[in-house]
Simulated scan of single mutants.
Amino acid sequence: MRLAGKVILVTGGCTGIGRAIAKRCAEEGAKLVVNGLEEEVGKELVRELGSEKATLLSADITRPEVPDQLVQRALGTFGRLDAVVNNAAYIDFSNIKTTNAALMHQMFAVNAIAPVAIIQAALPYLSEARGCVLNIGSVNAWCGDPNLLAYSMSKGALMTMTRNLGDVLFREYGVRVNQVNPGWVLTGKEKEIKRKQGAPEDWFTKVPPVFAPAGRLLAPEEIAAAAVYWLSDESGPVSGQVVDLAQYPFIGRNLPEKLPSPI
């Protein structure tokens, strides 16, 4: 198994991409500290994986005491910490007219500041294990949809942090830091967002080819499969890298003059 013996902390691990990553890591032999705000579904996940392989700490990662609590849960339960997956994210729609300071503070607190705080708390133990960090970003980090202004900015900050620490932490502590930027992924949260926007229940089966050339959206399990490579020793000394996981080139793509509605 590719992650045998490793202990991995996954934030936002109760649902969506984080849940898929936690499950796949367990299948590959890892033990998990799962963090998320959806406590009941988190408990369900721990029961599914088994208490000997997973533990849940349902807490808000923006609270100053939580990063250290997460690290101590890993040490207290499993005796070590080999990797951190900064997956938790806050998503909200905003543009130049609707973005305000309160939204920006909340967006950056979850998507950029908390990941740094968790790395700081984990660093001594990651260094001891010669472990790694995997940040889950978004292709929106490169520019973003006009109605995802604050979100895109926060993911851009996360990406810059990955490139910065990917160099410094590997040279000084032996800790690799990398990032994957998923494209459009069909998560439960994405379905809920589209329902609130008035989309039909089966909207994801009718996404135009310009947005989904494969005829479907990405699945959380496909992001999880890629995550295993970066969390395993297979990725060797690679650090400070950002990889887009999308169906088409996000930058420099040749789009038709008139775009259809994505839903």
Rank of each mutant, 00 (worst) to 15 (best):
residue 51 S to W: 13
residue 54 A to Y: 03
residue 57 L to M: 09
residue 57 L to C: 10
residue 58 S to L: 05
residue 59 A to I: 04
residue 60 D to K: 15
residue 60 D to I: 11
residue 61 I to D: 03
residue 62 T to Y: 04
residue 62 T to I: 03
residue 62 T to L: 04
residue 63 R to F: 05
residue 64 P to H: 10
residue 65 E to Q: 14
residue 66 V to I: 13
residue 68 D to L: 12
residue 69 Q to N: 12
residue 72 Q to K: 10
residue 73 R to A: 11
residue 76 G to K: 09
residue 76 G to F: 12
residue 77 T to N: 08
residue 77 T to H: 08
residue 77 T to Q: 10
residue 78 F to E: 14
residue 78 F to Q: 11
residue 79 G to E: 06
residue 80 R to C: 01
residue 81 L to P: 00
residue 81 L to S: 04
residue 81 L to Y: 00
residue 81 L to D: 02
residue 83 A to L: 04
residue 84 V to D: 07
residue 85 V to F: 08
residue 85 V to I: 07
residue 87 N to G: 03
residue 88 A to K: 12
residue 88 A to C: 06
residue 88 A to V: 06
residue 89 A to Y: 05
residue 90 Y to K: 07
residue 91 I to R: 15
residue 91 I to M: 09
residue 92 D to W: 08
residue 94 S to W: 01
residue 95 N to H: 06
residue 95 N to V: 03
residue 98 T to S: 14
residue 101 A to T: 15
residue 104 M to C: 09
residue 107 M to N: 13
residue 108 F to T: 07
residue 109 A to Q: 08
residue 110 V to Q: 06
residue 114 A to L: 00
residue 114 A to Y: 00
residue 114 A to S: 08
residue 115 P to L: 04
residue 116 V to N: 10
residue 117 A to P: 13
residue 118 I to A: 07
residue 118 I to S: 07
residue 118 I to W: 04
residue 122 A to Y: 02
residue 123 L to W: 06
residue 124 P to Q: 06
residue 125 Y to H: 13
residue 126 L to N: 04
residue 126 L to Y: 00
residue 126 L to H: 02
residue 127 S to K: 01
residue 128 E to R: 15
residue 128 E to G: 07
residue 130 R to C: 12
residue 130 R to W: 09
residue 132 C to V: 08
residue 133 V to Q: 05
residue 133 V to P: 02
residue 135 N to L: 01
residue 135 N to M: 09
residue 136 I to W: 01
residue 136 I to A: 10
residue 137 G to Y: 00
residue 137 G to Q: 01
residue 139 V to Q: 00
residue 139 V to N: 00
residue 142 W to T: 05
residue 143 C to N: 15
residue 143 C to E: 14
residue 145 D to K: 08
residue 147 N to Q: 14
residue 148 L to I: 03
residue 148 L to M: 13
residue 149 L to D: 10
residue 154 S to D: 02
residue 156 G to C: 01
residue 156 G to W: 00
residue 158 L to N: 04
residue 160 T to Q: 14
residue 160 T to F: 12
residue 162 T to K: 01
residue 164 N to K: 15
residue 166 G to K: 03
residue 166 G to E: 02
residue 167 D to F: 15
residue 169 L to E: 00
residue 171 R to T: 09
residue 173 Y to P: 08
residue 176 R to G: 13
residue 176 R to K: 05
residue 179 Q to R: 02
residue 188 G to R: 12
residue 189 K to R: 15
residue 191 K to M: 15
residue 194 K to D: 11
residue 194 K to Y: 13
